[in-house]
């Protein structure tokens, strides 16, 4: 039971890097997609955080983005292999359209996560359910511990890209 712990820690780092990189590639920290995301960004900035990091956290909250794609691809892979992960990717695309999101971050994140999880389980010996725990811990690090600190770090990364 406890011998899965190093695998879960490695999966947390992989998921964190994966969805932050894909969200920054799709320019989520640039502006709020819907009016709710801008309200969340203004609230985070009023309590001492960064504005662009607040935009990205608001976009994650109000529409399924690369983090949701990674979680649901891990769930689909745990149940039914690669076919389940691709089906989850299609469902994430439909869900993003329901939430009035015009981007492709969810679909891209789900497909990239499918490829990464397939490679890790086939060649490196990860169990598929470690990635579910990994993405839950990764989103807990980004949104659960301190919104002020995480928005500052994301804003710094966004400033480095532009």
């Amino acid at each position: 039971m406890l011998e899965q712990l190093p695998y879960i820690a490695a999966a947390t780092v992989i998921c964190l890097v994966l969805f932050v990189v894909i969200d920054i590639i799709w320019k989520l920290p640039k502006k709020g997609g819907v009016s709710g995301a801008e309200a969340i960004a203004n609230d985070i900035e009023a309590s001492g955080g960064s504005k662009h990091g607040g935009y990205m956290i608001g976009n994650i909250i109000t529409s399924p983005d690369a983090s949701a794609g990674t979680l649901l691809a891990a769930c689909g892979f745990f149940i039914y292999g690669v076919i389940g992960a691709v089906a989850a990717a299609v469902l994430v695309f439909i869900g993003a359209r329901i939430c009035a999101d015009k981007g492709f971050a969810g679909l891209t994140g789900a497909l990239a996560a499918t490829a990464v999880i397939w490679a890790c389980t086939t060649f490196l010996g990860f169990a598929p359910e470690t990635f579910i725990a990994g993405i839950v811990l990764a989103i807990l690090i980004v949104e659960g511990l301190s919104l002020k600190l995480s928005s500052k770090i994301i804003g710094k990364l966004w400033g480095k890209r532009t």
């Binding site: 819907v34 009016s35 709710g36 909250i61 109000t62 529409s63 939430c99």
Partner: peptide
């Protein structure tokens, strides 16, 4: 997610 979206939009 849709529930969060609706609450945030109404507050905005």
């Amino acid at each position: 997610t849709l529930e969060s979206n609706a609450i945030a939009s109404t507050l905005a």
